[in-house]
Every structure is written in structure tokens, then in C-alpha cells.
């Protein structure tokens, strides 16, 4: 059984469609799963109908769940400088992190929003296919010593915004337990919801002013990128901000609808 057949059958039995993921990426991750579990494609398919936990594990292992606080600090600085001008003054704005994983970019954004005093004018959503990572995002507890780079990123961003805010304003560090925990204020401001980007529409009815879709579509083929982007564009206000990973580009077919502006894109009016 080849990968294409496996993915087709996996979708039929479990309702998760990975058929338009980039071939190399999906085959690498699937062979790792088979190797670690000591199971063949056929054996996995025989088990998934009865074993929902196995399905969850496979979805988790296929999707990449890495996320960092203020990944690419210069992008966040540019974002913080643009945001007050970008958001409408009179109405509530909606910001959407798609494929937010364990939520660290959502919290990065909320830190910026609070530092700029915009917290009463924004609602911030994070969505992901994977309920386990969303639970983790909601709890806001992360390993500390492994992620000390977060503190550096945080300080870099604050410094370039001429702010002296200490990391401890937003995180409490427990060296004994080796954890850092997001402050209750930020946790209450974040709204995490499940969404399978491949088949579901946005799980809220608002139109969106800012979209973060960073390092998610690098795992999709161009066809799926176009489909996902069309859906996302529909949810965006004209002129809304669209933010991708540093080394990503939008597919050719979408270049007339999203215009590059420095490190960001804007939806064409």
C-alpha cells in the first residue's frame, strides 16, 4: 500500500484529509510513525476505527506542533509599530492565528496588544486541528530551561520598542518545576478553538482585521494552499493584514489578491 492509498483510506475512516500535504513532508513523518509504533499502513488502518486515541496520536505526529514566543523578533517589532495605525478606532477588531499549535504566537501577539494598550479593542482567536495542543495553549504552561530563548526574544522585542517591560509581567517562572506559565490576564484574553483548516471554515462569525498564518502552509501543496487562502481571504476585511513565516511566499495565483507591504501582506481592496 502506498502513501496516497493510505491517506485516502485514513480520511475515509477517520475524517482527516492529509492528501494535499507536500509529499516529502508527509512521507517522512508517516514512516517515522510506522517505525516508532512498529506498525504497517494496513495494521494502522485496521486499528483506527476502534482506537480513537491512536487517530489522535497520528494526527498529532503528522502535524508539526512547534511554536515559539516572538519567533523572528524583527517581524514582531514591525508588527507592533504598524498595529495602532492599522486597527479601526471605533470598532472591535478581530485577530486570527491559524494553526496556532501550543499558542505561543497568540501570547506574543497579546503581549504586544497589552503593551500598546489595545486589549479592549481586540479579540484574538487561535485555531488548530489538534485538540491536545489547544489544551496546552489554554493552560499556558511551557518548559522553561529548554526555552530560555523566549526570554531573549521577548527582551529583543521590548528593547526595540523602547519598553522596559520585564518578562515576569506576563510569565511566572517556576525554576523548581522548570516551567513558565502565562499570566491569567493573557490566558483570559486568548480564545482557542478547534478547526481543521483543510475542511472547516472559521469557527467564529466576525470578519478579520489581522491574520497570522505562519509556517503552516509550508506543509501543503500549492493546490491546497490556494484553497485555504481563498477561504481565509473571504473572512478578511479589505485592507486586512496577512502575516506569514519569514521564508514563505504566497502562491502565484493569489498574488493579485494579497499585496506585499514590507514583511507583511494586505488584502487588496
Amino acid at each position: 500500500m502506498d502513501i496516497k492509498d493510505f491517506l485516502k483510506e485514513f480520511n475515509r475512516r477517520c475524517g482527516f484529509d492529509f492528501s494535499d500535504y507536500s509529499t516529502n513532508s508527509i512521507s517522512r513523518r508517516l514512516s517515522k510513525i510506522c517505525e516508532e509504533m512498529g506498525l504497517s499502513f494496513e495494521q494502522i488502518l485496521n486499528m483506527v476505527v476502534a482506537d480513537k486515541q491512536l487517530v489522535q496520536t497520528i494526527v498529532e505526529d503528522i502535524t508539526v506542533n512547534t511554536t515559539e514566543l516572538f519567533r523572528d523578533p524583527s517581524v514582531w517589532t514591525a508588527y507592533a509599530q504598524l498595529l495602532p495605525k492599522h486597527l479601526p478606532k471605533q470598532t472591535m477588531s478581530t485577530i486570527w492565528h491559524i494553526g496556532c499549535s501550543k499558542g505561543l504566537e497568540v501570547y506574543s501577539n497579546l503581549i504586544i496588544i497589552n503593551e500598546l494598550g489595545l486589549q479592549d479593542r481586540c479579540r484574538v482567536f487561535g485555531t488548530d486541528i489538534n485538540p491536545t495542543v489547544l489544551e496546552n495553549a489554554q493552560k499556558g504552561v511551557y518548559p522553561y530551561s529548554f526555552n530560555k530563548g523566549y526570554v531573549d526574544n521577548f527582551n529583543t522585542v521590548m528593547h526595540s520598542l523602547n519598553l522596559n517591560t520585564p518578562f515576569e509581567k506576563y510569565f511566572s517562572i517556576d525554576e523548581q518545576a522548570d516551567t513558565m506559565t502565562v499570566s491569567p490576564t493573557l490566558r483570559q484574553q486568548a480564545r482557542f478553538l478547534p478547526q481543521d483548516l483543510v475542511k472547516d471554515r472559521a469557527p467564529f462569525a466576525y470578519r478579520v482585521d489581522v491574520v497570522f498564518l505562519r509556517n503552516v502552509m509550508i506543509y501543503f501543496n500549492e493546490q491546497l494552499q490556494n484553497r485555504v487562502l481563498s477561504n481565509v481571504l473571504e473572512k478578511m476585511h479589505d485592507g486586512a493584514l496577512f502575516i506569514m513565516g519569514k521564508q514563505e511566499d504566497i502562491p502565484q495565483a493569489m498574488k493579485s489578491r494579497l499585496l506585499r507591504q514590507g514583511p507583511f501582506y494586505k488584502k487588496f481592496k
Partner: peptide, 11 residues
């Protein structure tokens, strides 16, 4: 990738 393009990952 097999089609001689490059791909990136943050895995």
C-alpha cells in the same frame, strides 16, 4: 523535494 524544489519545516 522530488521535483527539485526546496521546502522548509519548523518541525
Amino acid at each position: 523535494e522530488y521535483d527539485a524544489t526546496l521546502s522548509l519545516s519548523i518541525e
